[in-house]
Design a protein around this nucleic acid. Structure first.
Lengths: 132, 132
DNA sequence: TACACAATGTTATATTATAACAATTAACAC
DNA sequence: GTGTTAATTGTTATAATATAACATTGTGTA
């Protein structure tokens, strides 16, 4: 079978919503907001999320148990993610810095482990919140 | 009051256990294994974990919802953590690489956000598992 | 002693995520 | 089209992770 190129119904519904809200959102919040569209059970959400994460359309912010749309149109970097998280307002931005990603992709640990993926989360205060 | 230097009873019990098992362990696994020592409720575990994370004695592996003892005797780096995680056997190692930590501490994102903390998780296959 | 605060104990509940199984749909080989 | 396979869906139930709320006890120090 060919690799799937189109999303299924539920996958598309969930992706549309995540892209619309444009900020990290939690699975049960997605569930509550998509009842009208036929998303009635947690599994419908989690299955769609799993798939969308797998194909790089969205990312999971691990420290927040939240999901956010990928900002890189081609979505080639789903295995190398970096985010900045404001600890005050919880704003999250995806970092795309070619030097950083190059550095991390090439990082070699002392045990000689071969990495195929990483996730980096920076925490601090965003500009707005650091003024307050 | 002076800054606390000694751990409380429950904090010490939980820390001793985490240090003993020497691998990432989940909160409810801690709970089940410490019934004899008087740890009977989730909150007793989570409160101790919160404190131990805060003072840098342990770290949370966010992608696994698990906790592991800090390997750095002085525990000064609790705000700058990096781990390697084997996706096959789930072995987790704390990475202490001064070049990496220096690079990340000094990283400046485009939005000019000031970071005071980061967590990095690398995924791949450990040496043992990549041979198989 | 009296005060302030950290830590504890306890019950209940919230939040996040998966198991199991049946039914349906989509893609492909022939 | 038919048969085959895999992906997706629907549904109910439950597992796993984490916190709220409140009363009580311990500990350091003025």
């Amino acid at each position: 079978m060919l690799k799937q190129e189109t999303l299924s119904k539920n996958q598309q519904i969930v992706l549309d919503y995540i892209e619309k809200v444009n900020e990290p959102i939690k699975a049960y919040s997605i569930l509550h907001n998509l009842q009208k569209k036929g998303i009635k059970a947690p599994l419908q959400v989690y299955r769609a999320l799993d798939k969308l994460v797998k194909i790089g359309k969205i990312h999971k912010i691990e420290s927040r148990n939240a999901f956010v749309a990928c900002k890189n149109s081609n979505c080639q970097i789903s295995k190398a993610t970096a985010f900045s998280i404001c600890e005050s307002c919880e704003e999250v931005s995806e970092i795309s810095d070619s030097k950083l990603s190059k550095y991390l992709k090439n990082f070699q640990d002392k045990a000689g482990m071969k990495f195929n993926k990483y996730n980096l989360e920076f925490f601090g205060l965003c500009k707005k919140c650091s003024v307050k």
